[in-house]
């Protein structure tokens, strides 16, 4: 997945615009790959994606990644003119912690499968039951499918204000309240940086001051 993407220009043509930089393992990999030979000599070996994922899951590893990224600041600014070095450490930490959480959750499912592929444990049975919810509890399937499109294709709708319409058309707004469904339950990932001065890219992803999240 490229950190650059095609965005609609005027008319029907597309132009390459920077998508903004957010330190997911893939984005980090892409930036580090752009390091020059001289850089690599200085910094020893290249890091493959698997290694980046592993490094991201420890505090020490994250510090190392931040240091490497900071050495590629020129590239980062090219990718994202709004790149803010002050935010990098916090973002890397957040991605790393989330990766740890995700791996832990996935591990539970894998562990149950390894123990006995035939006999399902509680979690796998629960996940398996959800697969058949489409008719009985469509809201669950709809939520899961909506979370999928939010990651892949919905940012355009979000930016043009159609995300609310989408959530209303799926019926999710009725379940969760219009504002909550559109902004909090599932928030599409913006694929372009937020530019100052408004226009198509003006709508920023919702942010919340510390301590004002939704407690479950």
């Amino acid at each position: 997945m490229s950190i650059f993407s095609a965005a609609p220009a005027t008319g029907n043509e597309s132009i390459e615009v920077p998508r903004g930089f957010y330190p997911t393992p893939e984005a980090i990999h892409e930036v580090l790959e752009q390091a020059t030979d001289a850089d690599i000599d200085k910094k020893m070996e290249q890091m493959d994606l698997e290694r980046i994922v592993a490094e991201m899951q420890s505090v020490e590893g994250r510090e190392g990644i931040c240091a490497r990224l900071m050495e590629q600041q020129d590239t980062l600014v090219k990718i994202d003119p709004n790149f803010d070095p002050a935010l990098l450490e916090e973002q890397v930490h957040m991605v790393g912690t989330t990766l740890e959480q995700m791996k832990d959750f996935e591990f539970k499912v894998a562990e149950e499968t390894e123990k006995d592929p035939e006999k399902k444990g509680l979690l796998r049975r629960a996940l398996g039951a959800v697969g058949g919810f489409a008719k009985k509890h469509p809201v669950v399937t709809t939520l899961l499918a909506a979370s999928l499109v939010a990651g892949g294709v919905a940012s355009g709708f979000y930016m043009t204000g159609n995300w609310e319409l989408f959530m209303a058309s799926t019926g999710l707004s009725k379940w969760f309240g219009a504002a909550e469904a559109a902004g909090e339950i599932i928030t599409p990932t913006p694929s372009t940086p937020i530019l100052p001065g408004g226009g198509l890219f003006e709508v920023p992803p919702p942010t919340s001051p510390p301590g004002l999240g939704t407690v479950t």
């Binding site: 959480q101 995700m102 959750f105 996935e106 499912v109 894998a110 499968t113 399902k120 979690l123 796998r124 996940l127 398996g128 959800v130 697969g131 058949g132 919810f133 489409a134 008719k135 469509p138 399937t141 709809t142 939520l143 899961l144 499918a145 909506a146 979370s147 999928l148 499109v149 939010a150 990651g151 799926t170 019926g171 339950i185 599932i186 479950t216």
Partner: peptide
């Protein structure tokens, strides 16, 4: 989205979707 059903999708993949959705 409303026409989608997840029957036949592996538990591991469904787990990923729940992770994204959150509790």
């Amino acid at each position: 989205v409303l026409d989608t059903d997840l029957s036949g999708v592996s538990e591991a993949e469904i787990a990923k979707l729940f992770f994204v959705l959150g509790p």
